[in-house]
Computed example of a mutant assay.
Amino acid sequence: MTLSVSTGQVIDLRVQPVDEVLGRIERSLQVHLVPGSLVRKRRSVGARTDRDTWVRIERRLLDKISDQGWNGTETAARLEGIAQPAWHGCVVWRDQDEPVMWRADETDLLPCEPVGNAILSKTPELPDDWWAALNASLDALAGQSTRRIATPDTETITQGLVAESIRGVLSGDVDTTIERWVPAHADLNWANMTSPAFSLFDWEDWGNAPLGLDSANLWASSLAVPTLADRVRHERRADFESRDGKVMTLFACSKILGPYAHPEDPRLDPARRMAERVIQELQTS
């Protein structure tokens, strides 16, 4: 491998060389990656192919791969009633030099561009039928069944993680017990959805999660634009009005307000205000 890092070190694929990795993927999938189409992120790399598909490549540490595996994009292909790119195939291998695995999934191209960055700073133009498609997909997802457990940020979500995250950041005695677990995308933000045609992609972390996780995540990524955050709460109000949805709102707030919070993050104040409001609601319900 051209990647030269110490054992187990978390690396940034935006700057690390990946030529040998791309070559192996082209040989394994019998496809050619289009020059100039490479999109590099911290944990993943993507590229268009000469057969008008997309290949997403991820490097993951072994201790970040649970017993259920990390074939989220593959297993999501069986889900019904959800607007997502069709999955075609994959190649997976263990690195010979490092305690990591590589995975490349080939899917259809996205129907159009992503809405924006994970966290938006201005209101996107989203027609009513886009919101209807979002709601239909999220409701269809929550109505299905799976043995997978969601792994947001590659960390398996559990009752203990929810309680620890909330109590470690927010004050106030609140019962954080989750009553209902349903299938969730687990990484719902504006960078993982397209517009004007709605499509939801990047399914590597999906699985059972507390009711309302997806809605809370999308709301949190909208907080810098108050009208957008309000629209998310309106569209997904059934989630936010539920007890589990309120706990997930606190979970999302704890991530914004936690030890890695940026002092200039415009979401800090609205997250604090919402956390105080939800804590009071849970204490009096």
Rank of each mutant, 00 (worst) to 15 (best):
D97Y: 10
R56H: 11
D50T: 13
Q280K: 12
A77Q: 11
D239Q: 14
D19H: 14
A77L: 07
V31W: 07
V100C: 14
L223Y: 02
S215M: 08
D63P: 03
D139R: 13
D205C: 11
P152F: 05
I119S: 08
V39G: 12
P85D: 01
R233K: 14
L13R: 14
Q30F: 00
C90Q: 15
H262S: 05
A163W: 04
K122S: 13
L213N: 02
R40L: 05
P196G: 01
L211R: 15
C90M: 15
N192K: 13
H185N: 11
P183C: 01
I178K: 10
D63C: 02
L3F: 09
H185V: 03
H262A: 06
A216P: 05
W131P: 13
L126Q: 08
R103E: 05
R43G: 08
F240W: 11
P226K: 14
D52P: 00
L126E: 06
A76C: 06
V169H: 07
T146C: 00
V92Q: 12
L79R: 15
D153I: 10
L141M: 15
V100I: 15
S171L: 10
G89F: 07
A140T: 04
T177C: 05
D52I: 02
E26I: 09
S37W: 11
W219Y: 08
R103K: 15
R27G: 00
A104V: 09
R267D: 00
Q68D: 09
V91R: 08
E276V: 06
T154I: 04
T176C: 15
V115K: 12
R148P: 00
I65S: 01
R147T: 04
P17R: 14
T249D: 02
L38Q: 14
